[in-house]
């Protein structure tokens, strides 16, 4: 794994955690939470290097 890949995984983790935090504490509408979930799924799979 190259340094660039590791840096991008860190960026993906920052975005993942921020979206998750917003979903749990800031978003009130159900549709906004679904929008957050749409972003979380692929980021989780990329963080685990499955896809």
């Amino acid at each position: 794994m190259t340094l660039t890949t590791i840096i991008y995984l860190v960026i993906a983790a920052i975005v993942f955690l921020s979206v998750l935090y917003n979903m749990l504490t800031k978003e009130e509408r159900v549709v906004d939470k679904i929008a957050c979930a749409m972003i979380l799924v692929p980021l989780a799979l990329r963080l685990l290097m499955i896809k």
């Binding site: 159900v30 939470k33 799924v41 499955i50």
Partner: peptide, 17 residues
Amino acid sequence: STCIILAVAIFMAVYTG
């Protein structure tokens, strides 16, 4: 609602993963 949505997201991530 948050728990349900998270549960569905986790299920989708696990299934497709």
